[in-house]
Design a protein around this nucleic acid. Structure first.
Lengths: 227, 227
DNA sequence: TGACAAATTAACCACGAGGTACATAAGTGA
DNA sequence: TCACTTATGTACCTCGTGGTTAATTTGTCA
């Protein structure tokens, strides 16, 4: 089946199966695109099947039903983004630099993961029903908060951060701007033109977001002039 | 029919009255709820019809098809929110107070219009296809930018606002926080607990948003300590 | 090898949901 | 009152879509 690289063939021991992993991956990849593009009810299983290298039957074989497929897609995309975030290490940066770095990284990771954004939008339309069902998603979110908590602690200790700085609020502020930047691009640029969505516009907004976040928690922060 | 408070509503089967406007309003009200809750493909015309005081036939009679109904719903909810925003007059406030007021009003109007939020989310899933088709929506968005432009101009003239303050960027910053606050409540509180979504949490976040916005454009702004 | 299970295919099905045909009651004006 | 338009209800149709049945191939290991 349309495997990318068949490491499964040279695989050792209990690998007597044909190529289940590649098939599952293939299905999830296509399904991610379709669900992100069309939503849960909007996506079409026949269409997904047609685009995969396998058949509709296999979707049901591995994922049970449409909702099961969606659930897997959601967990997979969450995991992927959080892994990226987790790879970033800021513990050796001084607090303000660390915060700047985390904010920039969040902004960038949102820009680079439109599928994640769209699936989270869709989840919110569904009142987070499938996120709630998930066993793994809640665990993924701890890391980012812990990182921010560490920065806050160090920042308060050295006096560069305000005493009321709060990791959860910081995450909310960073996320809100970063998320909206991608999620509402379509309506925003339709309504107000795309000047904030050019390459230069995005660079400026990224800087603005950093300034907003730092301005909220850094003692006496003065944002540099933006071009 | 009898959308609001008609007394003869149980006898409509045998002797109904003509009431096109009320019927249309009734359909739009129900359809707004359904589309906001389920999305375009998720909403069910039969279900909408069942919930109205009229029949499915009338939906097609007045709105053509499902997409036509959705388009009307979208325009109606946009108009409603923008009218509310337009009612706010800040031209007699000094620039910083005006900006604070506008930010608070945006935050509040988003909280108070969850249907609008959800429909805009849905629109973004559809790449703003129906907003683009609309004749009226683009016109509605001018007002808010003009208000912010006026504040910026006055603020720069008196020296309280930074020279790089920009009305469009200000609107983006205010909207992003206000929108995300509502749009992502479900996933955020599922992942991180609902401490920011209690009555006190929301009051605090509202203040944070104001501080972020003011901090970005007010010369030497020092946010007050947040409890 | 042959039994047995896992993986996979192709044809098929039920039904829900979008949309329509048609009849008819409610108003309007002469 | 009667013709005519607008508004409304009932019953109906069609087809797309989620999901399944049953048979077939592929691979493991005794």
């Amino acid at each position: 089946m349309g495997g990318s690289c068949d490491e499964a063939s040279q695989n050792r021991k209990t690998s007597w199966k044909k190529n289940p992993e590649a098939v599952k991956e293939n299905i999830l990849t296509i399904a991610t695109e379709e669900f992100a593009a069309q939503g849960l009810s909007g996506a079409n299983i026949n269409e997904i099947a047609k685009r995969t290298a396998t058949s509709k039957r296999m979707i049901y074989y591995y994922f049970g039903d449409k909702e099961g497929l969606y659930q897997h897609v959601l967990e997979r995309v969450y995991s992927s983004l959080r892994e990226t975030e987790q790879a970033l290490n800021v513990s050796d940066l001084e607090p303000v630099a660390a915060l700047r770095r985390l904010t920039e990284a969040t902004f960038d990771s949102h820009v680079n993961n439109p599928h994640f954004i769209r699936l989270v939008m869709i989840e919110n339309i569904h009142n987070a029903e499938y996120v709630k069902k998930s066993e793994i998603i809640p665990k993924l979110n701890k890391a980012i908060i812990e990182k921010l908590a560490d920065v806050c602690e160090r920042g308060k200790a050295s006096g560069v951060l305000r005493e009321d700085a709060d990791p959860l609020e910081l995450h909310w502020m960073t996320s809100s701007a970063s998320f909206y930047n991608v999620s509402n691009m379509a309506t925003f640029s339709t309504s107000f033109g795309n000047s904030l969505y050019t390459k230069e516009g995005q660079k400026r907004m990224r800087q603005r977001v950093v300034d907003m976040v730092l301005g909220a928690v850094v003692v006496g922060y003065q944002p540099p002039p933006v071009s």
